[in-house]
Design a protein around this nucleic acid. Structure first.
Length: 838
RNA sequence: GCCGAAGUGGCGGAAUUGGUAGACGCGCUAGAUUCAGGAUCUAGUGGGCUGUAUCGCCCGUGGGAGUUCGAAUCUCCCCUUCGGCACCA
């Protein structure tokens, strides 16, 4: 038999926890403060990977720690079960996405259980369950009724490989976030969530999320991209109508020397008609259309062409030539910009290239600029010149003054623009939640009546090799009756983006089995918001922004009372092997399950928590893993060896005091025990620095072994003068309690073997006695002119006079002080004393 | 290009508020145990100095300057790596 039979222990303890049902969150109990700990739920891809192990180990420590500190903890787990890989696997292996998904869930649930995670498994659900997505369909309808869902035809990001549309957030450098293939442009009709209606609230909320990493907030702010400025009308000189532009720099209006339009601007061709430039414009647009979407944005050089048409300056009436320019985006603002080459770098480059005039209208305070020898646009502050009545104004003040003037003349307004676009959620895929809408040739778009929900995804569908959704070909699915007129109509065959499911799952965990309503208002109010959310940084924008949006929508629909879903966010780093992210293609994947079988879950958890603080990347090391195993082995052996005497020791206050007073060695051990409690409590509870928490416990274990192995100790026992076991038992029990959130199995087992009847998981977290933890003497560093010259042992909190007297007589210190005058003494109590001599 | 984070022994990392740099672990070295290997235990382990060798000196946290009695920590400049955004008017 193995000396440390981790496999038996882990199986036994896991069974025990399950039978005793000790990780359930109690909906009724209001006597304890509540705490909601959550980790990002996984996509059931088949097996767990090291990223999951890290994510869930971190979350489990937090949940277990809070439980021991007396909180009523909600710590649930579920499955983000809709998605493309299921369809791909189904095509490849001739199975069904549902079968594939549910089999994976079965397998991965067992893997997670082998890790010994303290989940309330009774709350588990998969998002592909109609009992889950039916409520999502209800939200969709309620959002539709409130104008938060709409349908439009637009140019969309299309991934040929995935055969579906992607949201802007899901395109990375012109490529699909999932399969990394090029995204092409397509004109398609689809459903949109009006996330832009919440743009301002989402942005302002960033300032209130004190528990989020600044990095994530910056990314979200940038993504929302709020710009404050003005929309200005430039009337056309030779046509009816005008061109609208958006600018953040209305103060530079007098510096406009031309307008730039996107090649996709609807007026582009029309303006050139009859000017003689029509051919050139047509050619330019055609050439533009031939450039793949991916490459359009990567073009660096400024290219353009004159339309032959002119606009009129809204304040001066001057004629302004209108150009098409390859750098103007149709999707942002109005697709047209007023070009101020003197004060905008892009316009500057364009003007230089095509020999267009540069007119200076902002004069910086500290230098003279001349249009002819400028090397770059001046985008900084200054006061206005060449701007008629506005000359001399500070440019910030001029922004308002010029906008006001435009408003007065009816040629412009204040305007706020966002980079954020509405969230396109239609997916031309099968394995997703059906969009609960009906297209009636007579009545138009009609929502499915509430009492007909859920619209079930038909499970008898067959996928073709190309990966196209079978739904548009499945008559039994799409053929229906219009709820309004009762005549035949067609169901929507698009499904929802799978990010919709993960946008509210955290709320559903508060009442996962509720069959009458998506959420129970009282339970949601009791548990939400999530106190601590843990997950990867890769969701900094996507999931975390969508979840924030959904929370606000559900609040406005009356389901939730909170504004934000996650109070505190911990973004963990990646698990690397040989300096690179683990991936099949690199062949550097370490299978967690294999490691758990070989060394046990406790060892894997301990290593992964010990190797780096959570937010940093972690380098996997087989050697390090063995080190973690050795530590647990030592701990096991230490308790086993002394079990009878540990078991019979009494650890009441009196016995502890008597023992520690009788031996310096034991007194020091007891002090270390209480110092370690202080240290570990802070490291786990406040900083999430599990690595330093573990190292502190290791120090205590080292000191404990030193005591047990020391000759002095042996001699004391032999004489029978001291009973050391109370202090030793206290130290051992402290080690077990402090380690239990991280390595729950071995600590549970040893706790039990010490004779405890209550599971260590239900024990109270130890309290440090500050009296015991405080040292009565301290080693003080003695510096001379800032250089370390010696150490002295003094009473804790000793006075400066005493310390100084002791310091100068220290031989090595004396060498450096002798024959010099003492100019100054700096004394930091219990730390150091610095003698400044000259 | 812009924004952000990070650079500490052979390696992962520690130093919470400007106060003894390198905790803890890995690796390595020597010894014990062992037929041998492995495992385990003990001791040592930043670099340099034959220098008043259980003590001491000098150097040392990417590089350079500065503030300070004192800097891994604060300020400025530079270098490198990683992440995000990338014509957003």
């Amino acid at each position: 038999m193995k000396e440390y039979p981790f496999d038996e222990i882990e199986k036994k303890q896991q069974k025990r926890w399950e039978q005793a049902d000790i990780f359930s969150a109690d909906d009724q109990d209001d006597s304890r403060p509540r705490y909601y700990a959550l980790e990002m739920f996984p996509y059931p891809s088949g097996r767990i990977h090291m990223g999951h192990v890290r994510n869930y180990s971190i979350g489990d420590v937090i949940a277990r720690f809070r439980r021991m500190r007396g909180f009523n903890v909600l710590h649930p787990m579920g499955w983000d079960a809709f998605g493309m890989p299921a369809e791909n696997a189904a095509i490849k292996h001739g199975t069904h996405p549902a079968k594939w998904t549910y089999e994976n869930i079965e397998y991965m649930r067992e893997e997670l259980k082998r890790m010994g995670l303290s989940y309330d498994w009774k709350r588990e659900f998969a998002t592909c369950d109609p009992e889950y997505y039916r409520w999502e369909q209800l939200f969709f309808i309620e959002m539709y009724e409130r104008g938060l869902v709409y349908r439009k035809k637009s140019k969309v990001n299309w991934c040929e490989t995935c055969q579906t549309v992607l949201a802007n957030e899901q395109v990375e450098e012109g490529r699909c976030w999932r399969c990394k293939d090029e995204v092409v442009e397509r004109e398609l009709e689809g459903w949109f969530f009006r996330i832009t209606a919440y743009a301002d609230e989402l942005l302002e909320g960033c300032d209130k999320l004190k528990g989020w990493p600044e990095k994530v907030l910056i990314m979200q702010r940038n993504w929302i991209g709020k710009s404050v400025g003005a929309e200005i009308d430039f009337p056309l000189r030779d046509h009816q109508g005008s061109i609208k532009v958006f600018t953040t720099r209305p103060d530079t209006l007098f510096g406009v020397t031309f307008l730039s339009l996107s090649p996709e601007h609807p007026l582009a061709l029309e303006l050139s008609r009859g000017t003689g430039n029509e051919m050139a414009i047509r050619e330019f647009i055609e050439r533009w259309n031939r450039i793949p979407v991916v490459e359009r944005r990567m073009q660096r050089s400024k290219k353009g062409v004159f339309t032959g048409a002119y606009a009129l300056h809204p304040l001066t009436g001057e004629s302004i030539p209108i150009f098409l320019a390859n750098f103007v985006l149709m999707e942002y603002g109005t697709g047209a910009v007023m070009a101020v080459p003197a004060h905008d770098q892009r316009d500057f480059e364009f003007a230089r290239q095509y020999g267009l005039p540069i007119k200076l209208v902002i004069k910086p305070g500290d230098r003279e600029l001349h249009p002819d020898d400028m090397e770059a646009a001046w985008e900084g502050p200054g006061f206005l010149i060449n701007s008629g009545q506005f000359d001399g104004l500070d440019n910030e003040a001029a922004k308002k003054a010029i906008t006001d003037e435009l408003k007065r003349l009816g040629r412009g307004t204040s305007k706020v623009t966002y980079r954020l676009r509405d969230w396109g959620i239609s997916r031309q895929r099968y394995w997703g939640a059906p969009i609960p809408m009906i297209h009636c040739p007579r009545c138009g778009v009609v929502p499915v009546p509430r009492d007909e929900l859920p619209v079930r995804l038909p499970l008898d569908a067959h996928l073709d090799e190309k990966g196209r959704s079978p739904l548009p070909f499945l008559k039994e699915f799409y053929s229906t009756k219009c709820p309004k007129c009762g005549k035949s109509a067609k169901r929507e065959t698009d499904t929802m983006d799978t990010f919709v499911e993960s946008s509210w799952y955290f709320a559903r965990f508060t009442c996962p089995n509720n069959a009458v309503s998506p959420l129970d208002r009282e339970l949601a109010a009791k548990w939400l918001p999530v106190d601590q959310y843990v997950g990867g940084i890769e969701h900094a924008i996507l999931h975390l922004l969508y979840a924030r949006f959904f929370t606000k929508v559900l609040r406005d629909l009356g389901y939730l009372t909170v504004d934000e879903p996650f109070v505190n966010l911990l973004t963990q780093g990646m698990v690397l092997k040989d300096g690179a992210k683990m991936s099949k293609s690199k062949g550097n994947v370490v299978d967690p399950d294999l490691m758990i079988r070989k060394y046990g879950a406790d060892t894997v958890r301990l290593f992964i928590l010990f190797a780096a603080p959570p937010e940093r990347d972690l380098e996997w090391s087989d050697r390090g893993l063995e080190g973690a195993y050795r530590f647990l082995l030592r701990l096991w052996r230490l308790v086993q060896t002394h079990l009878p005497r540990l078991k019979s020791a009494k650890i009441d206050a009196r016995s502890l005091e008597v023992t520690s007073d009788s031996s310096d060695l034991l007194k020091a051990l007891r002090q270390k025990t209480h110092q370690t409690i202080e240290k570990v409590t802070g490291d786990i509870g406040e900083r999430f620095h599990f690595n330093t928490a573990i190292s502190a416990v290791m120090e205590l274990v080292n000191q404990l072994s030193d005591v047990l192995n020391s000759g002095e100790f042996e001699a004391d026992i032999a004489r029978g003068e001291v009973d050391p076991w109370p202090v030793i038992r206290e130290a051992v029990e402290t080690v077990l309690l402090l380690l239990s959130p991280m390595v729950p199995h071995i600590t549970s087992e040893l706790w039990e073997s010490l004779g405890h009847e209550v599971s260590i998981c239900n024990e109270r977290w130890p309290e440090a006695d500050p009296q015991v933890a405080r040292a009565d003497t301290v080693r003080l560093a003695v510096q001379v002119n800032g250089k370390l010259r010696g150490q002295i042992e003094v009473a804790s909190g000793a006075s400066e006079q005493v310390v100084q007297k002791r310091a100068v007589v220290e031989p090595n210190v004396a060498r450096f002080v002798q024959g010099k005058t003492l100019k100054k003494v700096i004394y930091v109590p219990n730390r150091l004393v610095n003698l400044v001599v000259g």
